[in-house]
Write a protein that binds this DNA or RNA. Structure first.
Lengths: 349, 349
DNA sequence: GTGAAAGCGCTAACAT
DNA sequence: ATGTTAGCGCTTTCAC
């Protein structure tokens, strides 16, 4: 094993100088810096993470906190975060924190205390519904752990970043598209109530209806939880109404897929008799028939950017506190038109 | 922060005794062991992973090596592995190793050297196609890193474990089921050629045909790569034949979904005009229409078991080398009958 | 069966 | 701008 002392001897400098070079600290001549890097490469030196973190209390790790890692959304976020972490020599770790604990302030406090002491993350990434949870955010803030929040939320926090798209605007766009096809009875299936996205997408839906002077009809709005099964159920209910909707905007793709299956089961043709629009553009959207019109979110980019911001922050901690990287970053979405939407048939309007 | 020395003082024993208790080492009186545990709980002591690994060269981490973490299969394996790791106080880390490097022996050797020095994993989990790669397996073996292999392969290795189902038997079963429905022209879409599963599933398919004295027709067997698009393409080709198959067994669900979409596009009704069977039972299987008949693999269990075996091995290293945990573990699969299969219509036979 | 001392590889604090 | 020294919290080695 090559140690730092070996590099120091090889480059004919002190231990500390090598350390400075590795940590991008100032006060090293460019010439020496270069010589040290040469020695590092020549000897194939790789710093020991355990020694570094033992001494410095930095772990070179980012934690992604989530209630599960199964599912297309979190899977893709993780993939993006992993890419950023690897690029900067950080590890990405997953910490499972389920909703039951999340919604119980006492249990949450205990969980966080253990988490902080045990993992000592240099930063954490929060996804919905965790990114919407005020308690969790403030506990981590108090523990002085940088956070990147993914997904829409209303948390005001000048020290950390939120990465999202304009859900409300996107939802309004898809609803307006359905209206432009001649649809007037447009149903909506909501996501989980504990997620900001649910409310913003609903607002976008009503924005579009109001702007077109179409009445908002309670019966056409069904609860859901972002899962396929809830879309299936909502679809069943909506299609069995005497005066059924001719189009449905589901708050995500999984539920939209459920609505499409419900249509098959009730012998309605999508898109001729029912238009369906989802949200996310997950892998399902291209694999079902008809393929799903939806809003494409840069989910991979969420993870990538979230991790990158944390790495940057960890790298500048205590050194240039002036450089505060934190803001609400609005990313770009894209409306993807596929086969699940069609003009409103006159028979139904 | 509570240190080991604090626990030692509190329990009125030496530092080393606490260390012994924590590492399950022998030569500690039961009475003292209990007292130490009490002190640990009372003080809320949590060992410092960095200090432990700096000294002992163990990292308390398992690495999952894969070319990507996106996709239902690897996602579920990871989820299972994460559960086991958390249960035993281990970290699960992901290392991305893409196929280009994997198939270039020189690049692979270099990658592994860096990986071993930098990560020092206590064990690695390999999934297809990595679990089928002889070079990778032997390099890791030489580096003395325990391996759990997931998925079918022919690697002979008395020191490590392989976890799989009997793919050949399962493939034979589904093909026999199609035969029992009266199908005689049964197509097959293969997976990636670098994966053992592809060959085993193909063998199961031919086993069933041979046993039923049905000729194996080359034209009905199409190449694929386990991806949706390859299933779509194979489906197109098979359906455009003059003498098209009445049933198709795809080597996985994603490709089966592609075949179903191809059927819609070519106006063939599934299952009335074409029966389709997949393999995996991933989330897609229940979300498409018609829902997919398939073989359910215990994918979560693969990850769970793989990690568990590695943790056990790491815990007994150097202490009881007699206890060698390694074998081929055959897990149970299940044939799931859904809506994508039907009896062969007489018109087509 | 238990303990004392040494030291893993690095960085923080303090020289110079 | 560079170097010296001490010590992070634990396990290893060896002594008893």
């Amino acid at each position: 094993m090559v140690r730092m002392i070996d590099v120091a001897k090889h480059a004919d400098v002190s231990l500390k100088t090598v350390s400075r070079v590795l940590n991008n600290e100032p006060h090293v001549q460019e010439k020496i810096r270069k010589r040290v890097f040469e020695s590092i490469n020549e000897l194939g030196y790789i710093p020991s993470t355990s020694a570094r973190s033992l001494r410095s209390l930095r772990t070179y790790s980012i934690h992604l906190i989530s209630n599960s890692i199964e599912g297309a959304f979190i899977n893709t976020v993780q993939s993006g975060a992993l890419l950023s972490c690897q690029k900067h020599g950080y590890s990405l770790l997953i910490s499972l924190l389920d909703s039951e604990i999340l919604n119980n302030p006492k249990a949450l406090k205990k969980w966080c205390a253990e988490f902080v002491v045990q993992k000592r993350p240099d930063g954490v990434i929060l996804v919905p519904p965790h990114s919407d949870n005020i308690d969790l955010n403030s506990i981590l803030n108090e523990a002085n752990i940088p956070i990147s929040r993914i997904g829409p939320n209303e948390i005001i926090d000048k020290d950390n970043s939120t990465i999202m798209i304009d859900d409300r605007k996107a939802a309004r766009e898809v609803t307006e598209y359905l209206i432009s096809l001649g649809h007037k009875r447009i149903g909506h299936v909501r996501g989980s109530e504990d997620q900001g996205a649910t409310h913003k997408r609903y607002s976008g839906y009503t924005d579009a209806l109001k702007a077109a002077s179409i009445p908002i009809i309670e019966e056409l709005i069904k609860p859901g939880n972002f899962r396929f099964e809830s879309g299936l159920k909502a679809g069943e209910e909506l299609l069995k109404m005497k005066n059924r909707p001719t189009a449905i905007f589901a708050a995500n793709d999984d539920m939209a897929a459920g609505i499409i299956v419900a249509s098959y089961m009730n012998h309605f043709k999508v898109p001729d008799e029912l238009s369906v629009i989802g949200f996310d553009d997950n892998e399902l959207a291209k694999r079902i028939w008809p393929t799903l019109s939806t809003i494409q979110q840069p989910v991979f980019g969420y993870g990538e950017r979230a991790a990158e911001l944390l790495v940057k922050k960890a790298g500048t901690r205590k050194k240039q506190t002036s450089l505060v990287i934190s803001a609400t970053e609005l990313m770009n979405y894209k409306f993807i038109l596929r086969e699940s939407t069609n003009i409103a048939s006159t028979a139904n309007n």
